[in-house]
Design a protein around this nucleic acid. Structure first.
Length: 262
DNA sequence: ATGGTCGGCACCCGA
């Protein structure tokens, strides 16, 4: 069995319902993981998704902020949602497919502007969130698992438009990258996107503030697909749908895809 | 060093 999975920070699932429908209609991933739905679960618009065959969903939501959802053509059962760092935020949901694969969908805290937990509480919360993810993964010994989402960290030099300029910018600081690496290691995860596309600049996010995001191309790879080592060799065909950043009234993130033959 | 743009929601907070 082969299935294609996509992850997309949608920045309001209600406002951008038409873009979700466009993605589902044109690309038809079997599973779509969304972040920043900014909606209570009961207000996520499901009718159009159902009509396209996405009849299954697991989600966590809240009013106005955060929110994660997994839309699926395949049956998926709720496998929980954690509240790491005890923020009271809807930032994680897990679902299990009938083939036994568990999909973890995360929206890691962005971390504010200043990369110093002494003066910026949000940065400390981001690091604590990653530390608690790491500790949970160590305890759980994950198998047959896929982790996706907006991790709000671009770990590699070629995941950002200018490594030197970004070193002190939240999302590309050494301490964040170390925390992310420990979390990845603890879960036994392989970076599937970079397994498939090992070389070259690769981004999934471009700021709304740029005059011409496409020409300036000051991007970052904040959105990730990881797989545990027992299924990482089944993965292929990774890509970023950069075009979606240029759609009408877009999200500032583009969807990331991978296919697994399992 | 600064400001630039969004979305939610009801004033500014978060990104």
């Amino acid at each position: 069995m082969s299935f294609t999975l996509a992850t997309w920070n949608i920045n309001s699932v209600r406002l951008r319902e038409p873009l979700v429908l466009k993605l589902l209609a044109e690309e038809s991933p079997d599973v779509l993981c969304l972040q920043e739905c900014k909606s209570p679960v009961e207000k996520i618009p499901l009718e159009g998704f159902h009509a396209l065959g996405y009849t299954h969903m697991v989600a966590r939501g809240q009013k106005g902020y955060n929110g994660v959802a997994i839309l699926s053509k395949l049956p998926i059962k709720d496998a929980g949602g954690a509240d790491y760092a005890s923020l009271g935020h809807a930032r994680h949901v897990a679902g299990q497919l009938e083939n036994g694969v568990t999909i973890h969908n995360f929206y890691v805290p962005a971390g504010g502007d200043k990369p110093d937990r002494e003066i910026n509480e949000k940065f400390g919360q981001k690091l604590d969130y990653l530390t608690e993810m790491r500790d949970a993964f160590r305890a759980e010994k994950l198998q047959k698992s896929i982790l996706v989402g907006d991790l709000n960290i671009a770990p590699r030099e070629d995941d950002v438009w200018d490594h030197k300029k970004m070193r002190k910018i939240v999302s590309h600081t050494e301490i964040e990258i170390e925390h992310l690496a420990e979390t990845q290691e603890a879960g036994g995860f392989i970076d599937i996107t970079r397994q498939d596309i090992p070389e070259g600049l690769l981004y999934s996010w471009w700021s709304y503030r740029a005059k011409d995001w496409d020409a300036a191309d000051k991007g970052r790879r904040l959105d990730h697909i990881w797989g545990t080592s027992d299924i990482s060799n089944a993965a292929h065909s990774s890509r970023v749908l950069r075009d979606a950043r240029g759609w009408t009234q877009p999200s500032d993130h583009a969807p990331v895809f991978a296919t697994f033959d399992l």
